[in-house]
Write a protein that binds this DNA or RNA. Structure first.
Lengths: 196, 196
DNA sequence: TTCAAAAATGAACCGTGATTCAAAAATAAA
DNA sequence: TTTATTTTTGAATCACGGTTCATTTTTGAA
């Protein structure tokens, strides 16, 4: 009897992230992914139902991590709303900073995926944003954050901002330091651009 | 002799925006666009070189308007930096508010387009953001805006935020009023979420 | 009313690349 | 070593939909 080596699946996923990032999902060829993973074209279909399934697995894994980490920061008892918001921002930066290609895939394909894969990913996304909203609500109650803001709008706003920054950063990681971006995001989010 | 009716091209473009928005560029079929435009499939190729050309025309037209309008607000002599920033934000909202589908296409396909069509659209995009940066610089000089911020980061931040909001709004225009969004964006941008 | 030239048509063509599958290779138990 | 079983392979298949083009329709001038 023979046993699957068991890391081919991971190889394929990693290769797929790179190829999807470089060409975009629709222009990415399975054969190219296989090549990068040092695997035959057909092998991809041993581990995945089809091309879309590869993308789905990438997003499932990603959202799982994002949500788990985000939840941790929100439920921490010892932090102020203010600190929680910082931590939530950190989650995104931490996950993507180790893998720029993943950031690109995330930004570029998330919408298309929601478009075609109604449900599943919209839910992940919403649940994540819910966490941000919870923090905002806490902060408002604690009189730390302005109650002027519509919470739904705020969460879409901040997430879009970060997404766009990650994307820009991922295209050329050496141009702007991620630390600087992270710092600026926290500052703008809290204080805006005006002088107090 | 016969003369082109001259509005078929516009019909096709309008239909394309709808179809691209609904299915995404890659899943959009030329035959569907033609159907929606009340035109034969082949007619699309009378007016456009190929499928990508249709998308390019949409973006060319769009960026032209965006940039022209943005430039107007920036160069207005009678406005403070603060007011100019508001106006720049208005430009985006005004253009897309009349056409939610266009907002969706813009958000979803812009990155892919930049990926494949190196140059042209990156330049449009950058020039637009440059305008935002100019306003920020003016504001800093006038001591209205904080000098703490990295201008490059700021412009990517704010643009991403607005893009994401427009996208969310376009998916369901009746859920959140665009006026409310616009108001909130201006507020968060200037003051952040903290109580002063 | 013709006629010529341009516009419009849509069925057929064709390239691409995802997917399949029969054969080969690898493995471990006998 | 042999054998049975599972994994891997990659060339062949096949569907899809973008694109083409011979034909038809429309138009306006003669």
């Amino acid at each position: 009897m023979r046993i699957k080596e068991g890391n081919k699946e991971k190889d394929i996923l990693q290769a797929a992230v790179k190829v999807f990032a470089e060409y975009g999902y629709h222009n990415a060829k399975i054969s190219k992914i296989a090549e990068l993973a040092n695997v035959a074209t057909g092998s991809v279909y041993v581990y995945f139902k089809n091309k879309k399934d590869v993308l789905l697995r990438i997003f499932e894994d990603l959202w799982e991590v994002l949500y788990k980490e985000a939840k941790k920061s929100v439920s921490s008892k010892s932090l102020t709303p203010d600190q929680k918001m910082d931590k939530l921002i950190d989650v995104l930066f931490d996950v993507f900073s180790v893998n720029p290609s993943l950031a690109i895939v995330f930004v570029n394909e998330q919408n298309h995926l929601i478009l075609s894969e109604e449900g599943k990913f919209q839910i992940f996304y919403d649940k994540f944003l819910d966490l941000g909203e919870i923090i905002l609500r806490e902060g408002i109650k604690a009189k730390q954050f302005s109650s002027q803001l519509d919470r739904i709008i705020f969460r879409v706003y901040i997430f879009g901002a970060i997404r766009n920054l990650l994307h820009r950063w991922a295209q050329d990681p050496d141009q702007i330091s991620l630390e600087k971006i992270r710092h600026n995001v926290k500052h703008i989010t809290k204080f805006g651009i005006s002088i107090k």
